[in-house]
Design a protein around this nucleic acid. Structure first.
Length: 136
RNA sequence: GCGGAUGGCUGGAUGACCGCGGGGCGCAAGCCUCGAGGAAAGUCCGGACUCCAUGAAGUAAGGGUGCCGGGUAACGCCCGGCGGGGGUAACCCCAGGGAAAGCGCCACAGAGAAGAGACUGCCUUGGUGUUCGGCCUAGCUGAACGCAAAGCCAAGGUGAGGGUGAAACGGUGGGGUAAGAGCCCACCACGGACCGGGCAACCGGGACGGUAUGGCAAGCCCCACCCGGAGCAAUGCCGAAUAGGGGCCUUUAGCGGAAAGGUCCGGAGUUCCAUCGCGCAAGCGAUGCCGGAGACCUCCGCGGGGACGCUUCAGCCCUUAGGCCCGGGUUGGUAGCUUGACCGCCCUGGUAACAGGUGCGGCAGAGGAAUGGUCAUCCAGAGGCGAAAGCCUUGGACAGAAUCCGGCUUACAGGCCAUCCGCGCAU
RNA sequence: GGCCCGUUCGUCUAUCGGUUAGGACACCUGGUUUUCAACCAGGUAAGAGGGGUUCGACUCCCCUACGGGCUG
């Protein structure tokens, strides 16, 4: 299975990173932050839309936000979309997030809830690479 | 067996890895434990709770409810009954008070739409011959028909027939009459003194009345009963930051005193409290050194004020300035916050709703908002293949707590249980 | 979360319980003009959905759906 193999592989870096990374992944709370992130780099994928921007301040933490509009569906579907995106961010985005950046994951109707999870993981990896490469 | 009615339950299960929110323990690492629904929904009713300072009575306006009895903290909810309607039945549905308090409306059609009306008709009496034609048209005259009616005119009787309409001022039959009419009679409908039953709604009987009372109150209204307003983004406390602002309204915005306690000062002592009393308990109350001060807090008296539609009263609560608007800043923490008119099983009372009892068990508390993500196996379900066993594929209803309860309404794949009704078959 | 309000032609809006639901803009057709615009004439086109009260409902009552506003 994947969990033991991956944990073996990432063992030494993960333990150091995890504390730092998890503490750095702060949830965006202010509407203005979301509006500013929407002005930054965008990378659309089959399951969601990733927005990212580097903040030009001294705070080294990486922050992340989630958006699920009424187009997604009723409250059950909106919650599920946000939970899947949150799980993705924890597994994929946390190790690769750059300090001082804001990320926003926007759910897409139907896709975010029904798309296969492994495809979503691949989507997020490529989207992160796209956003980071374009910037540098 | 088929079809139906009613009531209730359930709403995937187990495991692995990685995670989230609350609580407890721990210095920490971490460990343990709890973590969505029957509708959490719509926000349609009723409450608890908080603020508007409290309570009571009356009343205006406005709103709501509306058969009777009961249940409940309360309700527009529930239970039982009554009446009306539907269904072969089980059973279901009903905003179901008052139209003789008053106002209003009843389009079109129709004679007439509310103390109505007289179109076509029917009948009686009186008058007049009738119809057709011609002319010089208040009239004259010719022909045909007829000898007593019809027609026309006038006066009167009538409300039965026709037709209209959602609805036409009781219905059917008979008698009666000039023609008719509850004018009279029988039955039905209606009203109904009174009698019996029932707590009541109402039910049964019914002298008598000849018919009076058209419909609409989810039109205004009347009657009875109920209702103050706002809502946890209520309302407190702490902190940060900006500022130490501007405008308006009301106003007598105060006076006198005390020093047990807080506070302050000096000295002593102390800090998680101790002692005593009450209580089953949670808890509540009292006491806790000495001297001084009177600015502040506090307390007492007098005076003033207290918006909530208005008035009155009580109590003596709050206050000693209050309120509103603009501008500026913040968008934090904490309390409210979840054990309550609570839920399930059981026992007792009651037809039931429900009430009482105690025994056991259960009950999330976030705050840009947790309750999840992925995978595997199984279980319902659907489709395909197959004679069957079985195999493969697919796939899980409506839907996510936000102060908390009691209801209502709406959404809901599938499954299960109980009771009852109709039909058919067998015995 | 809480509290309110509203749904009528494609759009904006009228409408005592008694209609063929009125008007303006837009659209279509015809006329006028060399043509277009403007103008004239005519036409198409609507009661959010479901129940109830009533003889009769856009209107009165109830439920649902959708849309909008206010509130620290």
């Amino acid at each position: 299975m994947t969990p033991p193999g991956q944990s073996e592989l990432r063992d030494s870096p993960e333990t150091e990173l995890s504390a730092a990374v998890l503490s750095c992944l702060i949830v965006l709370r202010v509407r203005a932050d979301y509006l500013r992130a929407a002005q930054g780099r965008k990378a659309g994928t089959g399951g969601f839309l990733l927005q990212a921007r580097p903040r030009d301040d001294t705070d080294p933490s990486a922050r992340v936000g989630f958006t699920a509009s009424k187009k997604i569906g009723n409250a059950v579907f909106r919650n599920r979309a946000k939970r899947r995106l949150r799980a993705l961010a924890r597994e994929v985005l946390a190790p690769d997030a750059r300090p001082g950046w804001d990320y926003v994951l926007v759910a897409k109707p139907n896709a975010t809830v029904s798309r296969d999870y492994s495809l979503l993981q691949a989507d997020l990896r490529s989207a992160i690479a796209l956003v980071h490469k374009d910037r540098t």
